[in-house]
Design a protein around this nucleic acid. Sequence first.
DNA 1: ATGAAAGCGCTAACAT
DNA 2: ATGTTAGCGCTTTCAT
Lengths: 382, 382
Amino acid sequence: MSNLKQLAEITRLPILTVYQALEGQASVTAAVRQQVQTAATSLDYTLNITIRDVAALADVSVGTVSHVLNGNTRTRPETRQRVLQAINDLNYRPNSMARGLKSNHTRLIGYGWHKTEDPGRPNALLDRFLYDMAQAAEAWGYHILTFAQPSQISLKRYDELIQTTRIDGLVLTDINYHDERVRYLLKSGVPFVAFGHTNEDWDFPSVEVDGRLGMKLAVEHLIARGHERIGLLCWPEGMRIGDVRVQGYIDVLAAAGIPLYKPWIVRIRNSVDHAFLATQQLLAAHPRPTAIACTNDVMALGVKRYLNQIGLEAGIDVAITGYDDTPIAELVELTSIRQPIDMVAAKVIEILIGEIEGKPVPRRNILLEPTLVVRASSRTQR
Amino acid sequence: MSNLKQLAEITRLPILTVYQALEGQASVTAAVRQQVQTAATSLDYTLNITIRDVAALADVSVGTVSHVLNGNTRTRPETRQRVLQAINDLNYRPNSMARGLKSNHTRLIGYGWHKTEDPGRPNALLDRFLYDMAQAAEAWGYHILTFAQPSQISLKRYDELIQTTRIDGLVLTDINYHDERVRYLLKSGVPFVAFGHTNEDWDFPSVEVDGRLGMKLAVEHLIARGHERIGLLCWPEGMRIGDVRVQGYIDVLAAAGIPLYKPWIVRIRNSVDHAFLATQQLLAAHPRPTAIACTNDVMALGVKRYLNQIGLEAGIDVAITGYDDTPIAELVELTSIRQPIDMVAAKVIEILIGEIEGKPVPRRNILLEPTLVVRASSRTQR
DNA sequence: ATGAAAGCGCTAACAT
DNA sequence: ATGTTAGCGCTTTCAT
């Protein structure tokens, strides 16, 4: 294989002309295009602009081109200008793999997630989160590599990606107490940042949205609307994300001087059907709650469905709040708690790139605040 | 920098022992670990297994290792075995960038998408589609690189990814007539596959789900349930995906001998609110329709909301069908049309990899069939 | 300020 | 059947 310069020598044409001829640009006459084509064919050359072509056109060494590319050493403005011009003329883009091979990084961030059988899992927000991460990463010259994480968490996937130098770091979501991925990554020293956290005694970079505050907002809102008998639908114990939200409920009631009433707290699996049944149970309690807070939107939907079935209306007869403000919440006019996903994504990326590039940011653990979005399901004053 | 073999020579230890010592494995005594550590430090060596280390341990050349790695030439079973053993012992994984630099491919597939302001856009299915693609790609040794596609489509993003050799090919979704991305990619010769299609006269690989059939299924179902006055809520004209679905509606009515009644066809923008208003309009028509088919689930939600507001019940008073079977459909018990997303993803990947590797599959344009999912919103016989 | 050259880890053509 | 070696395109010392 040859390069542009050789072609230029053979055809006795300027390098730039050769390039333009190969690109089929109209600025070059058909005759010249033909001539260059022939020469290229005979040399078995296919157009592929490298740093060497740029160097040849700018009449400098490849080292100099690399320098202006990376803004390292100062280059004489005039030289720099020539190089930039050549880069522009040839529409040159550095080969990411050659770059990576040399400098041993990929500028790729891995993100794996589960298939969500269960439409209500936190990653119903995945679309937004992933998009926002991709966007944030691009500003730093990074991209996101997504991979499928089988529901039975397999460290093998992570190991593979790391060992093959596919990625520089990882983003973790849906983590829980003693998450084995966190344990593994901590041990192997691979840069990563988690959306959420595990047990407090593990130290690793993370971005969290304050779940206790979120639930607090929801329940305070219900109280402000005149409710005092407030039920809670929550996930089974043992999930950090759920436990934190339940704590918010407990806190607010305590602060308001409303005693906790056990029959009003129902722990269920995350589905519309379970929530439907739980609502039936809740409304059979004595006294019956006038409002129901849920640890996520899916459960709230189940509540709503049961209410409809027995002829009650959400927001009028019984107030409901969901959590996560998934798109569905807006569609069915459900009051919910919104997480600042774009902020989470931006922070996750910022912290991760700090870890990757060996310049850790000062605050590696961020706690963001959710906000309350009031809709018809709880708007009415009691 | 040095390698394992040199360390082994200096310490007069077997290569494998040196590796295990560096890994801190318990099979090596603390004393030896210490000795190796010291030697490594003095040589400024950091553990990084390359093909050369494997070759040294298996006592073959790097060429041989590469051969067994790529299954090219036949190697003597015994040699092959030794190499495999060494790879295993050292937990060796080839560096993806070195591999890519040499062979000029990344084994990365680009996928860009819009932020969906509008929760009802087709890519509400993104979560599933992306996951399924990632999964399918992994079976071929590929991964997905996701990037943010600003809503104002900019070819620059695509160009950048291609020119920097970031990706081997692309997957396109949400395409429309005369899509400029398709035009650009077609011209530049970059491998790509689209989910959906543009004008018929453009020839490029694609996977589509038959929208005409989908709507046909929905309307036939309504007719079978005893409906004859069927309204249609659809997107504005000019979107291929919508036009095709409308055609399905027209076809079925024609086949059933039901004349088309213009006031029952309402073209609106894709939102709950627009659908809400359109339903009001539809129900004011004379005669009023007894069923409403929608070109997607979001609109169906708007219909449902209006019905509820005026005290009618979906499925009892007026039948409703949605389209796309987004998670929301199940949650609100909405009859909908399901697209076989997993099949789409698998086919898209299969075709794309065929294009990338220069072995195009025979059928580059696939038309898949959607299925009807009947739920409470249309189950009742009239 | 710029150039020359080594080499990142791998593949594949060629040699033995 | 296996070994040797020349790059892939880039970054980065080290000279000049």
